[in-house]
Amino acid sequence: MVIASTRPGRLGPAVGDWFVRATAELGVDLDVADLAEVNLPFLDEPEHPSTGIYQHEHTRVWSRRVADADAFVFVTSEYNFAMPATLKNAFDYLHAEWAWKPCLFVGYGNTSAGTRGVQMARGVAGSLRMLSIGGDIFLRIADDMRDGVVVDSERLNGRAAAALRELCRVADVLRPLYRDGISVAPAVRADAAEVAPALPADVAELLVLQRCCWVDEAVANARLDLPALLESEGEVRESLRTWSTWCVRSGGRLVGSVRARRDGDIWEIGRLMVAPDHRRTGLGRRLLAFAEAQAPDSVEVATLFTGERSDRNILLYQKSGYALTGGTAPAGAVRLTKPLAA
């Protein structure tokens, strides 16, 4: 439950307390996140929230709290026909943590009972891929509150219980989406990822990861004969003897890998791959930089190859300092090189 208003004299906590009382018999674990206590500053993260790369501890704490939730009850007032800026700010800090989770709104106010604030908040929630289940509750202060407290009634309490019961049912249905790694907050931050040498025991997972990752490449380049899709487990095992290969794990699962080797005066980087649910977190850039840093001091150039139609990969490499160059490349691929710092 998110209490949106933070101003002195606010009624949000009283509305939240009523909702907790009215639904207590359901046995639902309601974590009350009062934004006055969460105390987020105005959005101060330099990276876009969709990357999941957070520099500030207050963001990481908020991310973990939202990611742990199965559903949301937003208790919000209405200020000037809109939701409080504090609620919009709390939404804006995160991205994947909200997605595919159901939400319910409890609005309160005077003339409109908070309906216009809820309408605005519902639109933002939808853009973050939350599912507003409807059945929202609206309290008119003059009718439903006395001395700053919600007046308990069989009608209101019954509506609260029915709404939360429905919210839980929808959360049960949606859980495979947000708990199977499709869009929840990445379990490993790119700047904290532990990169470790690949072991023979990692071969099976490496094979699965590269086949998963190269499906997109096959689609983008309209070809199915990519080596990464066709290699056997034995060939991947053999590659560990001819390449230096490194892996990243999250929750015990292999989610990223890269390999490199010396080819004369060139440091060749290959098989840069990140599990689909950990993309756009900076992990790919971290692995690429790590591989570059392993180059021998006497090597001055790094090179890599990607599909000639793999626009997203090419853009990533160009942003990392690589340039398209001529020279020998596998059929249907392009070559990119980058000078390495001395």
Rank of each mutant, 00 (worst) to 15 (best):
I3W: 04
S5V: 02
G9L: 06
G12M: 04
A14V: 09
A14R: 05
G16H: 07
W18E: 08
A22D: 05
T23E: 04
T23C: 13
E25F: 03
L26Q: 12
E47Q: 12
E47I: 00
P49T: 10
P49E: 06
T51L: 14
Q55H: 15
V61Y: 00
F72A: 06
Y79N: 13
P84R: 06
A85W: 08
A85D: 08
T86I: 04
Y93L: 09
Y93C: 01
Y93W: 14
K101H: 08
P102N: 11
L104Q: 11
L104P: 08
L104M: 05
G109R: 08
N110Q: 14
N110I: 08
S112H: 13
G114N: 07
R116V: 13
V118W: 01
G123L: 08
V124P: 01
G126P: 00
S127R: 10
R129Q: 11
S132H: 10
I133Y: 11
I137M: 08
L139C: 07
I141H: 03
I141K: 11
D144Q: 13
M145D: 04
V149G: 00
G158K: 11
R159D: 10
R159G: 00
A160E: 02
A161Q: 14
A162R: 14
A162W: 02
L164E: 03
C168P: 00
R169W: 11
A171T: 04
A171R: 04
D180L: 09
G181A: 06
S183H: 12
V184E: 12
A185N: 09
P186L: 02
P186E: 01
V188T: 10
R189H: 10
A190H: 05
D191G: 00
A192D: 14
A196D: 08
P200W: 09
V203F: 15
Q210F: 10
C212S: 10
C212L: 13
W214V: 00
E217M: 02
A218R: 10
A220Q: 15
D225S: 10
L229A: 05
E231G: 02
S232K: 03
V236M: 15
E238K: 12
S239K: 11
S239W: 00
R241I: 00
T242F: 04
W243M: 13
S244A: 15
S250T: 04
L254W: 12
V255R: 10
S257Y: 00
R261G: 02
G264T: 09
I269C: 07
L272Q: 03
R279H: 07
L283R: 07
G284T: 05
L287K: 03
A289F: 01
F290L: 07
A291C: 12
A293C: 05
A293G: 15
A295I: 08
D297K: 14
S298A: 13
S298H: 13
V299G: 03
T303A: 15
F305R: 14
S310R: 02
D311E: 15
D311V: 14
I314D: 01
L315W: 06
L316D: 01
Q318H: 11
S320G: 07
G321L: 08
Y322F: 12
A323M: 10
T325D: 11
G326K: 06
G327K: 07
P330G: 11
A331P: 02
A333Q: 12
V334H: 08
K338G: 06
A341V: 06
A341C: 03
